[in-house]
């Protein structure tokens, strides 16, 4: 299934609903599960579309506005489509001190994108992130859920797949 198709799914899956209800079950009210619910759905869909947002808000018995206010507050909730893998590049001080900028420039060259953008094949979205807690192995970044560290501008590009055709 490609992104476009993914976006079309409006209602939540049974699995998503079950997981959300599970979170709610140990909270004093449904609205308190807002962030968990957003993360659950994003876990399956990569991002939170308007349709997902509306569906989640319904489950939590809150307004879309209230939920969107929460969703847009947090860095790791994506309200725009992102690539298959989100690349979180640490731009905080320890990594910067270790030439993180140069490493990042190399990544941007390789992926032909800037921060906030997604590669044309839909594989990667590059975002800056605050310190990943790996400062003794700076510079560091995450590709998807995988942490990479001791990065080097010369060979960081190898960590990424070659840009391919736009998945169909």
């Amino acid at each position: 299934m490609n992104l476009a198709e993914e976006n079309m799914i409006s209602a939540l899956s049974e699995q998503e609903i079950t997981e959300i209800e599970e979170e709610i079950s140990h909270l004093p009210n449904r609205q308190s599960a807002a962030i968990d619910a957003l993360k659950i759905v994003q876990g399956y869909r990569g991002w939170i579309s308007d349709e997902s947002l509306i569906a989640i808000a319904k489950i939590l018995q809150m307004s879309t506005e209230e939920l969107d206010g929460i969703a847009t507050f947090y860095n790791l909730i994506f309200r725009y489509p992102v690539g298959e893998k989100v690349v979180l590049f640490c731009d905080s001080v320890s990594c910067w001190l270790m030439d993180g900028d140069k490493v990042c420039a190399a990544i941007k060259r390789k992926l032909k994108i800037d921060y906030g953008e997604t590669t044309s094949d839909g594989k990667y979205t590059l975002l800056p992130v605050t310190c990943l807690g790996d400062c003794d192995h700076a510079p560091a970044m995450m590709i998807g859920e995988e942490l990479h560290h001791d990065l080097d501008a010369a060979n960081v590009a190898q960590l990424f797949d070659e840009p391919g055709e736009k998945a169909s």
Binding site: S63, E65, E66, D68, G69, T72, F73
Partner: peptide, 24 residues
């Protein structure tokens, strides 16, 4: 929200990009 009990006006985003409005 707190005084008039409305739920379709919210604060969105954060830092110097906070936005007060509706979802759409």
């Amino acid at each position: 929200q707190d005084y008039a009990g409305g739920d379709d006006l919210s604060a969105f985003a954060s830092r110097d990009r906070i936005y007060f409005g509706r979802s759409a």
